[in-house]
Design a protein around this nucleic acid. Sequence first.
DNA 1: AAATAAATTTAGACAAAGCTAAAAAATTGT
DNA 2: ACAATTTTTTAGCTTTGTCTAAATTTATTT
Lengths: 227, 227
Amino acid sequence: MLLYYFEMTLSEEDYIKAIYHLSQIDSKSVATNAIAEQMKTKPSSVTDMVKKLSEKSLVKYKKYQGVSLSEKGRLVALSIIRKHRLWEVFLVDKLNFSWDEVHEVAEQLEHIKSDALIDKLDAHLGFPKVDPHGDPIPNKEGFFTKSVKKLISELPILSEGVCVGVNDSSVTFLKFLDKNNIALGDTFKILDREEFDGSVTISTRAGSIRISEQIASNLFLEIVDEE
Amino acid sequence: MLLYYFEMTLSEEDYIKAIYHLSQIDSKSVATNAIAEQMKTKPSSVTDMVKKLSEKSLVKYKKYQGVSLSEKGRLVALSIIRKHRLWEVFLVDKLNFSWDEVHEVAEQLEHIKSDALIDKLDAHLGFPKVDPHGDPIPNKEGFFTKSVKKLISELPILSEGVCVGVNDSSVTFLKFLDKNNIALGDTFKILDREEFDGSVTISTRAGSIRISEQIASNLFLEIVDEE
DNA sequence: AAATAAATTTAGACAAAGCTAAAAAATTGT
DNA sequence: ACAATTTTTTAGCTTTGTCTAAATTTATTT
Ligand SMILES: [Mn+2]
Ligand SMILES: [Mn+2]
Ligand SMILES: [Mn+2]
Ligand SMILES: [Mn+2]
């Protein structure tokens, strides 16, 4: 990730990250209003910030034409995302937070400035490849293995992956999972799917079980594509 | 420490901490210039900030008369110091930083807002009582066991304590310590002192050794006074 | 008790990041 | 094609935390 030798404020970092995420969704240039919504600010504030980021060559910007990250900006985004996701792993693996409690704190921790810190944290965590939500962690140079996160209901038979999230985070659903020995971090394989009702047979640590279409469309598996 | 229910900025927190430390040294009210020096700002900036802190009842302030922490301010200071020192323990014990590398990063980490985070970190570290520099860690309510950090040369015979720091951090001195099996974290007992040259006999894990007055006046032991 | 020096406060500016209201450009609908 | 709508930018203000220079208060010397 090659340290960026210019000081960036917390706010600038959050904007860069927001622009990165928005351009992942759409790939075209990102609209002022979209950034404003993501950052929970007003479009006029976005215009101001985007001008400043453009001055620093972190984004490419032409009036009324939206904005996109420069290569420099992309690397900054990935370095913040790396930090965010490493801290999330720390919070879950070492401090026993659950995967749905960590985002807000990571949002703060990602801005701590120290290359040594993040290197040592990475080592301490055993160089994880994905965060607790199944999202890939870029390495120091900004490379990461593309991982695909898909609902069980959308995966073909014989797919295999790690359960990394739920769509419906209601207490009743989480209790259901518990009762059926399904937990975040488990590896599942999709054995069969009924044409009739969309129910799916998956293998779990406790043996193979049948789950309804409704359940299958609420569980995310993370499939890592080796590069 | 009973959470403070008002938002504080990073800068306000650092000022409160600075005022706390300065009033430890002197116990009287703290001078504007002293704060300015500590915070590396100008006296006029200090006056501005002190007025704001006074508005929030965090300090007692009368024009030209210096400033002191209110009880509320003291608790805020202790909560930040608690966080600072817990993070220092984390950096040294878990991430293998050395005790002289951690201050700057802890200076950032101490401002992360999350009560759950600091509770879980505390537990993860095994509820440490002192930081890597031998300074006591306040508990959630702001209480801490007073620990005395003194040079071996200043301690009476039969004192016992944990080696927590050096005065002279030159490479030659640190190498000398290494050669004589003296390391941070070791427990020493002062067995005898020669009137003639001030040299001291101490018991170490490798047996008892004699150290010169010069060495004795460069090694800090931390003596914990049980409350 | 002045005079001088030092410490502190005030006044006025500035950069960062935000906001509202108004203007301008781009897009959409007819 | 052109009017209406939506998006984006500009202009002007606000708050935080900082600064310099000038004024004021307190402390120290003669
Ligand atoms: Mn953030
Ligand atoms: Mn995540
Ligand atoms: Mn700090
Ligand atoms: Mn310390």
